[in-house]
Amino acid sequence: MTNYSAVFDSNGQWIGWDASKGHTLITGQTGSGKSRTAYVLGCLAAGDPLVQVVGVDPSGILGASFHSSHPGDFVLGSDPDSVIDLLTAVVTEMDKRALALGKNGMDSIPDRLLGSKLFAIRVVLEEYAGILEAVDRKQREQITSLVGRILREGRKVRINVLTILQRPEAAVLHDRGQYQNFFIHLLENRTSVQMILDDADENVVNTLTHLTPGVGGYKEIGPVPLMRFRTPTMEFSEYHARVQAFNNTPALRR
C-alpha cells in the first residue's frame, strides 16, 4: 500500500519533516513533482494534532481543502486586503507569543507546551511569486514585510512558513537565510540552484538541473549533504480526503 504520509529518500528511508518546526521551501519547474511534494507535506501538517495550518493560495487548489474546514485561515485567490489581513493576524499572534515568552523567562516554545490551547502554526504560501505579482507596489511591500517578520521571528514561537515557488528569484526568495528545509525539484540552471544553496558545488548543481519528474533533492540547513528523495504519486482527490479527515485543530481566526 502506498504511504501518503511521508517523503522517502532513494533508499526508501523516511525523511522526518516536522510540520511544527522549521521554515521550509518547495521549489521546482512545472511538471517536476513540486505539487506532489506539497500534497504530501500538506497531509503531514493536517495530520499533526499540534499544528494549525493557515495560508494563501492564488490558484485555489492546494488551499481549498484547508479553506473548507477553516475559511478564515486560508485565502483562496490573491485579494490583497485578504492576504494582508491574514498575515497581519499571524504576526499579531507571533508578537503575543513572543511577549509571553519574555514574561515567563523563556526564549522559545518547547514541545511540552503544545496542546489543547497552544498550537504550532504552519503558514503555507502557495506560488508565493504569484501572490506578489497580483498586488501593487505598496501592497507588495506590506506582504514581504509581514512574511519577512514571520521568517525572522516566527521560529522561536513555533510559527513557520512553507513557501512553494516555481522559480527561485532574489525578489521573491527574500530572507532566504531563514529557511531550514529545502525540497528541491528540477531547476533551470546554476543561478537557480545557487539562489537557494549559495555554496552548491558542481555535483550538486549537476544533480539539481538533471532531476526526473517526481524525484528531488532534500537539503537541511548546515553542513549536511544533499539527499535524493521521491514522493508517492497522489491524486488531488486523495489529498483532499486526507486533509479533510485530519484537519481537526481549532481555527486561528473565525
Score class of each variant (00 low, 15 high):
residue 95 D to Y: 00
residue 105 G to P: 10
residue 85 D to V: 09
residue 86 L to H: 03
residue 88 T to W: 04
residue 100 A to P: 00
residue 108 S to V: 10
residue 88 T to N: 08
residue 96 K to T: 05
residue 127 E to H: 09
residue 95 D to P: 00
residue 83 V to Y: 05
residue 123 V to A: 10
residue 123 V to Q: 05
residue 90 V to Q: 03
residue 126 E to K: 04
residue 93 E to C: 01
residue 124 V to K: 06
residue 119 F to H: 15
residue 111 D to A: 15
residue 115 G to C: 10
residue 87 L to A: 09
residue 90 V to L: 06
residue 117 K to T: 14
residue 98 A to E: 08
residue 108 S to C: 15
residue 86 L to E: 04
residue 116 S to T: 10
residue 92 T to C: 00
residue 90 V to A: 05
residue 93 E to D: 03
residue 89 A to G: 01
residue 85 D to H: 10
residue 90 V to R: 01
residue 117 K to M: 08
residue 82 S to G: 04
residue 101 L to F: 02
residue 110 P to T: 14
residue 100 A to N: 01
residue 116 S to V: 08
residue 101 L to N: 01
residue 115 G to F: 08
residue 110 P to Y: 14
residue 114 L to A: 13
residue 114 L to T: 12
residue 105 G to A: 11
residue 91 V to P: 00
residue 97 R to I: 03
residue 121 I to T: 12
residue 105 G to D: 09
residue 120 A to M: 06
residue 87 L to T: 07
residue 84 I to R: 09
residue 89 A to N: 05
residue 82 S to Y: 03
residue 116 S to F: 07
residue 128 Y to F: 13
residue 104 N to C: 00
residue 107 D to K: 14
residue 120 A to N: 05
residue 125 L to G: 06
residue 92 T to N: 00
residue 107 D to L: 11
residue 114 L to M: 14
residue 115 G to S: 12
residue 82 S to V: 04
residue 111 D to W: 13
residue 91 V to C: 01
residue 94 M to N: 00
residue 87 L to I: 07
residue 111 D to C: 12
residue 82 S to Q: 10
residue 113 L to D: 15
residue 99 L to C: 01
residue 96 K to D: 03
residue 118 L to Y: 13
residue 116 S to P: 08
residue 85 D to S: 15
residue 111 D to N: 14
residue 95 D to V: 01
residue 88 T to Y: 04
residue 90 V to H: 02
residue 92 T to P: 00
residue 123 V to N: 06
residue 98 A to R: 07
residue 113 L to V: 15
residue 87 L to W: 03
residue 105 G to V: 07
residue 85 D to K: 14
residue 93 E to R: 02
residue 91 V to S: 00
residue 109 I to H: 11
residue 111 D to P: 10
residue 121 I to L: 14
residue 102 G to T: 02
residue 107 D to P: 02
residue 106 M to N: 03
residue 112 R to T: 15
residue 109 I to A: 14
residue 97 R to H: 02
residue 106 M to E: 08
residue 101 L to A: 03
residue 116 S to A: 12
residue 90 V to M: 03
residue 116 S to I: 05
residue 83 V to M: 09
residue 107 D to F: 11
residue 92 T to A: 00
residue 130 G to R: 08
residue 98 A to D: 11
residue 100 A to D: 04
residue 117 K to P: 03
residue 84 I to T: 12
residue 92 T to H: 00
residue 124 V to N: 11
residue 109 I to T: 13
residue 84 I to L: 13
residue 118 L to M: 15
residue 99 L to W: 02
residue 111 D to G: 12
residue 130 G to W: 06
residue 89 A to Y: 01
residue 102 G to H: 02
residue 122 R to A: 14
residue 116 S to R: 11
residue 126 E to L: 02
residue 111 D to Y: 13
residue 97 R to M: 02
residue 118 L to R: 14
residue 103 K to A: 11
residue 84 I to P: 09
residue 82 S to E: 08
residue 91 V to Q: 00
residue 103 K to P: 02
residue 104 N to A: 02
residue 83 V to T: 10
residue 103 K to Q: 11
residue 130 G to D: 12
residue 114 L to W: 11
residue 127 E to P: 06
residue 94 M to T: 01
residue 98 A to Q: 08
residue 113 L to I: 15
residue 108 S to A: 15
residue 116 S to N: 10
residue 104 N to M: 02
residue 124 V to Q: 06
